[in-house]
Design a protein around this nucleic acid. Sequence first.
DNA 1: GCCGTTTTCGGCCCGACTGTTTTCAGTCG
Length: 626
Amino acid sequence: MIVSKDIVILSSICYDITVKYYTNLEIAVLFRKMAAAYQILDENRFKIIAYERAADSIEHLTSEVKDLWDDGKLAEIPGVGATIVGHLDELFKTGKVKHFESVMSKVPQSVFPLLSIPGVGPKKAYKLVKELHLRNEKTAIHDLQKAIEKHKVEPIEGFGQRSEEVISENIKTYRKGAVKEKRIVLSEADAIAESVISYLHKQKYVQHIDVLGSLRRRVATVGDIDMAISTTKPKEAITYFCTYPHTKIIEQGPTGASLLLHNGRQVDLRVQDAQSYGAMLQYFTGSKNHNIALRTYALTKGLSLSEYGIKRIQNSEFRIQNKDAKNKDKERIKQFSNEKDFYKYLGMDWIPPELREDHGEIDAALKHTLPNLVNLPGIKGDLHIHTSFNLEPSHDLGENTIEEVLDRADTLGYDYIGISDHNPSTGNHTDEEIIRIMEKRHNFYRDHVENWNNKYNKSIQAFIMLEVDIKPDGSLALPKKAFDSVDAVIISVHSSFSMSKDDMTRRIKSALLAHSKVKILGHPTGRLLGEREGYEADWKEIFRICKERSIALEINASPYRLDLTDALVYDAVKLGCVCSINTDSHHVLEMGQMKYGVSTARRGWAQKRDIINSFGYNEMKKWLMP
DNA sequence: GCCGTTTTCGGCCCGACTGTTTTCAGTCG
C-alpha cells in the first residue's frame, strides 16, 4: 500500500521549484507532503485522509492530470473535489499554490526525508527535527544517525532507549535499500510464495494456506508477500513459520508474524481458525480502497466489518461506549468460514480478487452485474511466439524449433498458435532479399507444421505471422510484397522510445493504418517493469482506430511487461476494443506465462468475448484473415 | 477536504502492534 514513504524517493522534486509540467507522480508526492504537513500541524484528520486519497487516486490514474485539466475534467477524479480542483488549477497556471506554500512555511522541510525511515511518521519526524535541530533537508537522516550515536534521542519525550535502537536499526535497513521501494514482478513473488507454502504444508495442523494482498489480486508488481493459514494450533504455526530461513523477525504476535527473508523480501503471515477464515481472507486481500469502500457501504446498513467477521452496530455513540467491552463484541460477531458467504451477507456477489480496487466492483456486485471474467482454461492459443528459424532479424530469435513449440502448445492444450518472429533486418537486406526470405520461411513453416501434425496425429493449426517493427516515422519495417507471405502481422515499437506524446501517437496511428494485414498492436506502451516507464500516447485515439480497423491490442503476458497495463485494458474494453493475450515467448518455457496476461486482462474487467484468443480456431481464422 | 448506498450537512474503516506510557499516541497495513 502506498504510504508517505515515497515522498523522499522524489526528494529532488522540491515543491518550490517552479516547473510548467507536473506529472501525476509529482502531484501525488506533493499531496502526500501536504497530508504529512497537516498531520504535524494537527489539522482535521479527515482533511489529511482526503489529501492522501487524492494522492493515491492520482497516482493510479491512466491519463495525465494535466490532460484532464486541459479538458476541464479534474472533478471526475475520485477524491478530488472543488477545493483541490482549485489548487490544481493554480498549480498548472502559475506553477505553485499559494495555500500550499503558506502551509509548508510552517513546517521544516527536513522532516520529509525522515519519513522514509520505517516506523517514523510525521509526528515523530517533526519532534526529532525540532529537538535535535535537524535543519538541513539533504543531510537530515545522516544528522539523525549522528545524534543517535551520541544518545540524544533517548531523552526526548515520547522516545526512549528502545525507540532509539529501533530507529538506528531502521536507518540501516533503509540505507541497505531493503525498504519497500523495490517491488518485484509477479513471477518472482510467486516463486517465493510457493517456497514458503511448501514449507508450511509440512505441518499437519495447517489446514488452509492462501496467498493474500497484492499477490492474490495479481497486481503487476508486489511489495510484501502476504499469506494466511487456518489452523487448530495458531501458536505452534507462528513459531514454526518463524523458523523459515530469514534474516530478521520483524514482528511476531498471537495473530501472525512478519519475516524479512535473505533476498530482502518481507513475508507476512496471518493466522486464523477455520470458522473466521473467510473474513480474514477478505480483509487481507484488500485492496485498502476496496475495503474502505466496502466498510463504508456496510456502515450504511448498520454493519461493521473486520478481519474477524461482521457485527451489527446501532450508532457511533454506542460504539464508543462499547469500546472497552471488546470481548462482549466478539461474542456477537458473525463469523464466516469462506469469502462467498461474507460478501453474500452484505447482499452482494463474490468479487474476484483481481477486481477489488474500488473501481465500481461493489456497485456491480450489489446489482449482480459483475463481469464474467476471462480465465486461463478459456485460452485456445498463443499468437506471439518466436522460433529459432533464422530469418536474419534485427532482434532476438527464439531458442526453440517449431517442433518444440508445437510440442509445448500441445501440452498446454492449445488449438492453434501464431508464429510471430521479428522481421528480417532492413539494414542488412534489400527488399528483394527480404521477400525471398519471407517466402522461404512461409514454405518452411507450412511443411514442418504439417509433418508434425501427421507424425503425431494432431491438428494444431499455425498462423504464419510476423512481428514487424514500427519505425520512428510510423512506417513498417517490411516491404509491401513480403506481406503476401504472412497471414497477419503484429506491429510493435522497438526503438526511439523517447518521443513526445503527439509524435508517438502519430507514429502508432500511421503504423496501424499502414496495411490491412496489421491485426495486433504488440506490447502497446513499451513498458518494462522496474526498468522503463511506458511511453505516453493518446490511447483513446489509438483505441478508437483499433476498434474501427478491427485490430487487437496485445496484452503481453511476460511478467516483466504486462502490457497493456490493467488500467488501459479497462479503458480499451470499455471502448469496445478486443485484446489478444500473448506470451511473446522466445523459449518454450515462457509459453507457460500466459496466466500473467490472463490476470492482467481480468484486472481490466475483460470477458471472454473481449479476448480474441479465447475464440476457437474457425472463429479466430475468420477474425485474423477476413 | 470529500461526498451523497440515511444526499448539501454531518458523517468519514478497522484493528494490531510498539513503546512509553498508567490509558495513550503514533505508525502501519
